[in-house]
Design a binder for these strands. Structure first.
Lengths: 222, 222
DNA sequence: AAAGGTCCGTACCGTACGTTACGGTTCTCC
DNA sequence: GGAGAACCGTAACGTACGGTACGGACCTTT
């Protein structure tokens, strides 16, 4: 549980990466009906090669999740020196980036697969654990240094970084992810994402800021 | 989309209700592997009866979701007269009730099915839409009168009830639902649920309250 | 008590899909 | 240029499962 975010960078050949991209495309387009035949047809490869490279269907799905996770990984947001505006900017960029990821069709399709499979037999080694490690826990590990730096700079105050972090992503994500996963036709334009990120960040700073963290920005009761 | 929360109370016979409860039990226990044979065995009925009563597998799943939704529906929380303490109490009870629902094994299993099926062919008539109507949108319809009453009483202030509601459930739920759906071993004891409900409510009142809404309760930076 | 209906248990059918096997083609290396 | 490997396309196999059919038991009605 809560294993390190999959540091074993499994390297795939270009051909294999193309196959995995085909799997992702199929997941996005066709949804839950993903057969080995369809993958082989889409990727123009033989089923024999699929089984040779990935073992079985489970291995193919696992490799796909890891492959996508390796593509999503972005730079860290921590910086050594922070003032109120820089902290706010870091949080907003973080929130906007995360909202963009969780509302992307690829992320939705992948989470659907992981969730569908999380109910089944293997509770530990399933796709759900990989998604958690590379999604929820990975972004926590990336954001917490920012929060701690903000606290060290006296800009925000909290006892438990984890609790503060969870409040932040609650304010940012709200019900977006579950609605999208359930098929709600919710469109998030880049402008809406930016606005939501700013609103959530200001709400977070209202809750956890030590003083008027953002002068000129009154309480956002929008 | 956003259809009314399924007012057509489909009535099932006792035998059929027992079958649907068996389906729920199987969903919770076995997870994603739900076959008609398993249902017939578990419910001690013939497959012929299953198809006679529910049409096909899809109909059985749909009936199960509706049946569970009809069991979860609870009383409304609105009241005509509100002071600050009564509003806070209503919100806390609401939050605690909702947290208890979304963290229950039945809700998790059902959401897994609906999400897995939401990726497939039928985007509108699937289980996801039913879950949304009876889950997310139903609780919104039940809580919004409380929020509006609080605003009318001058206790809280916001422009859009929907936005305020979404901030509230974001603070309450945070990442609980997605983590549980992905198989995270997250245990919410009743005490934790109550504490989370109170924390989220006080944070919400800090954000949207017009004045010191809860005297004696400082900003909860826990 | 006979008739009809409902339902259980089981067997059966057709299909879909995961997995394996095989022939033919292309590429690499010596 | 020839040997071998890697790989593509397709066919074949076994199983699982959704859906249907049938015989027998129980219960109700007249």
């Amino acid at each position: 549980m809560a294993s390190p975010p999959d540091t074993q960078d499994e390297t795939f050949t270009d051909r294999q990466q193309a196959v995995l991209d085909a799997v992702l495309a199929l997941m996005v387009e066709q949804g839950g009906e993903l057969t080995m035949n369809a993958v082989a047809r889409r990727a123009s490869c033989s089923k024999e090669s699929l089984y040779k490279w990935f073992g079985d269907r489970e291995g193919l799905l696992t490799a796909t999740v890891r492959w996508q996770a390796s593509k999503v990984r972005t730079g860290n947001y921590d910086r050594t020196k922070l003032d109120a505006l820089a902290l706010r900017d870091s949080l907003i960029r973080f929130a906007a980036n995360w909202l963009g990821v969780i509302s992307s069709p690829t992320s939705i399709a992948l989470n659907r697969f992981a969730i569908a499979q999380a109910g089944g037999g293997a509770p530990g080694g399933g796709l759900g654990a990989i998604m958690l490690a590379n999604g929820r826990f990975a972004i926590g590990a990336r954001l917490k240094p920012v929060l701690d730096a903000g606290r060290d700079a006296g800009l925000i105050a909290f006892d438990d970084t984890e609790t503060a972090f969870r409040s932040f992503i609650g304010l940012v994500g709200r019900d977006v992810q579950i609605r999208l996963l359930l098929g709600d036709t919710l469109r998030l334009t880049p402008a809406e994402i930016e606005a939501d990120a700013a609103r959530a960040t200001d709400q977070f700073l209202t809750l956890y800021g030590t003083a008027n963290p953002v002068p000129g920005l009154p309480k956002t009761n929008a």
